[in-house]
Design a protein around this nucleic acid. Structure first.
Length: 802
DNA sequence: CAGTGAGCGAGCTTCCGCTTGACTT
């Protein structure tokens, strides 16, 4: 073999193989191959923060294979991405594969096109060790921060929690936004709009200022009685709309969320599939750059399809300062392909990418905006009517970006032809009460947008980060019901003023991010003791230092040492002095018992408590639904203690309303039915409870394929991925091609025997760990760690085998 | 899933960023 080329992704390897031909073998390493081990030996703090790297467990096979191939090759070309992480991957490959310098070449390209690859081969270089050092600084800093802060949280707040440079700031954003919303008091104003009828067409004009009170609005309408309305001025201005830049990871996530309603992980999975099938370029990118080839190809498609006037070839420059631009923007690999993808969801995402990319290469839309000033004979103030006419649609023919804010500005309409001095016949004037909107809650995608603006996180981590903060229960993605409020309006028609009070729904949310109590408590705790890391500019400031390291102006160990000194002091001081955080609040006094009522975070979550901590007869109830420690009232807390109660009898047995870990439910002598969110468990009626029990029975029956007389704990059920056997607490898989309904109890026992029991495996692994650890414990501690690791592996293996 | 919450204490948890599959009830 003459040449071995190593890239990061197998799909990329396949494409490049086509461009390079027979003298080259192109293969992939699947991203990072080595990393710090997950223990406290990973960084030798006392020795200049020297990191210890290990080949990742899931990369051992790949590394072995690459090593073999590298030995046989004359030249090894390291073609990992052209950024900090990519440079580090190349360096780790040199180290892990023992590559001799004289047969190793480092090459880079930021687009996968034949000319770019061939050019790169002509310009090989060595490893940029300064850039590698910048990556090491990044890696070590993140480990020190994450593994430094998390244990403090275990001690001071709750077990299994985590903190880190990226996730903790993401949570902070959600927590602070929620507090802004809670603190927001919505004031209203009256907006005045007049509607005229000109040749059967409606012209809507607005008073530029709003009234704070109904009385002022009323007074204004009174003054408009009997007035004539005349066009005082007409002004037309040309305007342009520009297409948006092609997609990056973050903008794709935002648009797929807004236009298609996809979650981050769904979008990324679909994009990955399209990428692997060769339909789109790489989907984890921060660049809006398009290759020259792509721009040329698109110009042809646009001219052919829409006419030359619609084509406006151009490249975009990124506005994101943290961008490393190792790849192109996300675009179709072949613009002539209008449809791609195997499922409806894939097709829709591809279409979105196609339209966005093509639109980016099209001409601006041209508009004409008209502003008419309308005088009112009885007063000095004027009304304004605005209209918009599309002169040339340009890129709008293909694509229009949507926005996060669902503004209630009416669509800009066309105005009928008007002339100065023209008298407009009034149909009516309405003063409508308009409430100020509180800041909007984050969606997954808008939180990513915010993080990107702050330079926090990378395209490959946006979706996982948002998943992590939900997995840790710092943040929940939920729908919330709104509430009704009165909206007043006054309408002047035929010199008569009528007043109307209508109800509107407000505050309803869909798929928005809400902080949990634990999210709030952890954020406050970290802000109090580690304000530097929680600062929204922390990442930007360390990034600047990483850049200095990359430029060779600074040694990475020095930078880390400078950071770690004060950080370690904060860690130690906090561990020693900080009290355990429970978010406890005293709500007031229970009128029945005269005891204090508290809310706080207990072991299994937030609780309300009647009685002080040392009260032997204190009572506790878990907080349910949307109740939170921060906002719960005394009345709401006392309501919780009304459970459990009997709502009525059904089939001779009582229906008891209870609140469990997963919310309110009906206990019908051991048969459980949840009370849906949005229904108040305190006012539920007996007939409704019966209905819920019957519904639940039906769904259980539908789910059940077969039961066994021999063992009521064994059932064949329908699951999300087809039929499976529920065997006590275990779930057994049914081999492909087996008719689930025909399984006998003996078959079930056989399946149980064949398939490993993860719980038992875990137990066994623990035991094994203990057995090996105990004799070693006398001598040396490190061996104990090794045993633990072995145990962990054994569990993983046992579970995997299944 | 389904009434938990004391106290003791063993054993455990955790970061960010680069990649795919394997797997999910």
């Amino acid at each position: 073999m003459k040449n071995l080329v190593i890239v990061e992704s197998p799909s990329k390897a396949k494409t490049i193989q086509k461009y390079l031909g027979g003298d080259f073998v192109v293969t992939s390493c699947m991203g990072h191959i080595r990393d710090l081990p997950g223990n406290d030996k990973a960084i030798d703090v006392a020795n200049n923060f020297t990191p210890v790297y290990e080949v990742n467990d899931d990369k051992k096979k790949i590394v072995a294979e690459l090593k073999k191939q590298a030995k046989q090759a004359d030249v090894v070309w390291l073609a990992s991405d052209e950024d900090r992480e990519g440079e580090a991957i190349a360096w780790h490959l040199v180290e892990a594969l023992d590559l001799p310098e004289d047969k190793t070449r480092r090459i880079v390209f930021h687009e996968i096109t034949k000319p770019a690859i061939l050019k790169a081969i002509q310009q090989p270089r060595g490893i940029d060790t300064a850039l590698v050092d910048a990556q090491q600084a990044r890696r070590v800093l993140d480990r020190l921060v994450g593994y430094g802060l998390s244990p403090v949280l275990w001690r001071k707040v709750q077990r299994n929690l985590s903190a880190g440079r990226v996730q903790s700031v993401a949570v902070r954003l959600v927590v602070e936004r929620e507090r802004e919303i809670q603190a927001f008091t919505s004031t209203s104003q009256f907006r005045v709009q007049a509607e005229f009828l000109v040749d059967g067409k409606s012209v809507v004009a607005e008073l530029p200022h709003r009234f704070d009170t109904e009385e002022e609005a009323q007074a204004f309408l009174e003054r408009c009685k009997g007035a004539t309305f005349t066009v005082n001025g007409l002004e037309t201005k040309p305007a342009k709309k520009r297409p948006s830049a092609p997609f990056t990871t973050s903008t794709l996530q935002q648009e797929a969320s807004r236009k298609l309603g996809y979650s981050l992980s769904r979008t990324m999975k679909l994009a990955q599939d399209l990428y692997e099938a060769g339909h789109i370029t790489y989907m984890r990118t921060d660049s809006v750059n398009l290759s020259e080839l792509a721009i040329g190809a698109m110009a042809q498609v646009i001219s052919a399809e829409y006419g030359a006037r619609y084509s406006n070839p151009k490249n975009y420059t990124t506005k994101v300062s943290s961008a490393q631009e190792a790849h192109e923007a996300i675009r179709p690999t072949d613009t002539t392909v209008r449809n791609a993808g195997t499922t409806e969801a894939h097709v829709r995402l591809y279409e979105l990418i196609w339209k966005r990319t093509v639109a980016s290469q099209m001409a601006d839309a041209e508009l004409e905006r008209t502003i008419a000033t309308i005088g009112v004979s009885t007063i000095s103030e004027t009304l304004t009517a605005t209209g918009e006419v599309l002169i040339f649609d340009g890129f709008l023919k293909v694509y229009m970006e949507s926005t996060d804010e669902d503004t209630d500005s009416e669509d800009s309409k066309m105005l009928p032809p008007l002339s100065v001095g023209q008298v407009l016949p009034l149909d009516h004037i309405t003063a409508q009460e308009k409430f100020q909107r509180p800041p909007s809650r984050y969606t997954e995608a808008s939180l990513v947008k915010k993080l990107e603006e702050l330079g926090i996180g990378r395209p490959s981590t946006y979706a996982p980060t948002i998943s992590t903060i939900q997995a840790r229960n710092y943040v929940v993605k939920e729908d919330r019901d709104g509430w009704k409020r009165d909206v007043r309006s006054l309408t002047l028609r035929n010199d008569q003023i009528t007043r109307l009070v209508e109800q509107e729904n407000t505050g309803a949310e869909r798929s928005k991010l809400f902080p949990t109590d634990i999210g709030g408590i952890v954020t406050d705790f970290l802000l109090q003791h580690f304000d530097e890391i929680m600062d929204y500019n922390f990442t930007a400031s360390v990034e600047k230092q990483f850049d200095e390291i990359a430029a060779g102006q600074r040694k990475w160990n020095d930078m880390i040492a400078e950071f770690y000194g004060p950080f370690k002091e904060d860690l130690d001081r906090t561990a020693e002095t900080a009290e355990r955080q429970s978010g406890e609040r005293l709500l007031g006094v229970d009128p029945k018992s005269g005891k204090n009522v508290y809310v706080r975070l207990a072991r299994y979550g937030p609780v309300a408590q009647i009685g002080d901590a040392d009260d032997e007869n204190k009572k506790m109830k878990g907080l349910t639904g949307a109740l939170s420690i921060e906002t719960i009232t005394l009345e709401q807390a006392l309501e919780l203690f009304k459970f459990p109660y009997v709502v009525g009898d059904f089939e001779g047995k009582p229906m008891v309303i209870k609140v469990g870990r997963f919310g309110p439910y009906i206990d019908h002598e051991g048969f459980f039915a949840s009370i849906p969110k949005g229904e108040d468990p305190l006012t539920i009626t007996a007939p409704r409870a019966e209905e819920l029990i019957i519904e639940k029975r039906k769904s259980v029956a539908e789910r059940t394929i077969k039961t066994f007389d021999e063992d009521p704990d064994a059932q064949i059920l329908k699951g999300r991925w087809g039929p499976f056997v529920k065997f006590g607490k275990r779930n057994l898989r049914i081999p492909k091609g087996t008719d689930a309904a025909s399984l006998t109890y003996a078959d079930v026992l056989k399946l149980a025997d064949e398939q490993p029991d993860p719980a038992a495996a875990k137990k066994a692994a623990r035991k094994a760990a203990k057995a090996t650890a105990e004799p070693a414990a006398k001598k040396a501690a490190p061996k104990k760690k090794a045993a633990k690791k072995a145990a962990k592996k054994a569990v993983k293996k046992a579970v995997k085998k299944k």
